[in-house]
């Protein structure tokens, strides 16, 4: 026992093993940034109208009295197209109010996507030069925020919402907020 310090490198090594194993097992993607806006109110942003679609603004975000989603998407973003199906499902089958922010897109292309794949959005706004979504801490499309009835951001989903995410993350959180 007197020479315990000889074992210190070994002990240190095992501490490192535990440290790295944690990261491996938990499978957290360190490049995904947790939002600092959680539990803060949805920031005021100025969006433009997309054709004749209802414009997304601060008023109609708060109008529903239910938690809603704010989805940032583009026609040029491939994961957004994959996600679209599940946004449709949530909007139609689960009655989720989804607000869309069309990011750095061509209006024509955006409209074409909505005509082709359906429109899951209750209201849409466009951010052509990408300056407004900086207030949301956006760093890649798609990103989706869950907003509660009081207009507070409760959750941020980075990347596309796939079937698993919809059933195991987004819908449960929406239900949980509703029950509050």
């Amino acid at each position: 026992m007197r020479k315990i310090y000889l074992y210190l490198p070994l002990i240190f090594f095992f501490i490192l093993v535990i440290f790295f194993a944690r990261q491996l097992i938990l499978d957290e993607n360190p490049s995904k940034l947790p939002s600092v806006l959680i539990d803060k109110s949805f920031p005021p942003i100025k969006l433009n109208q997309l054709s004749s679609y209802k414009l997304f603004n601060a008023k109609n975000l708060l109008s529903s009295g239910d938690p809603s989603l704010v989805n940032i998407w583009s026609s040029w973003c491939a994961p957004c197209q994959i996600e679209h199906e599940f946004l449709m499902k949530m909007s139609l089958e689960h009655n989720v109010k989804i607000f869309g922010i069309n990011y750095k897109d061509d209006n024509k292309d955006a409209i074409e996507v909505l005509k082709l794949n359906g429109n899951p959005f209750y209201a849409i706004g466009t951010d052509e030069d990408g300056t407004q979504v900086i207030n949301l801490g956006l760093y890649g499309v798609p990103e989706t925020f869950i907003i509660d009835a009081n207009g507070n951001i409760r959750y941020k989903h980075i990347g596309p919402i796939l079937e698993y995410d919809m059933n195991n993350i987004i819908l449960p959180i929406l239900n949980k907020i509703k029950r509050e």
Partner: peptide, 21 residues
């Protein structure tokens, strides 16, 4: 934030350009 170990100065990612602006 796109190429996460680069500074804005090094990066030409669209978001980096927006942030620089």
């Amino acid at each position: 934030l796109v190429c996460q170990n680069q500074s804005l100065l090094d990066s030409d990612a669209p978001l980096a350009l927006d942030l620089k602006k």
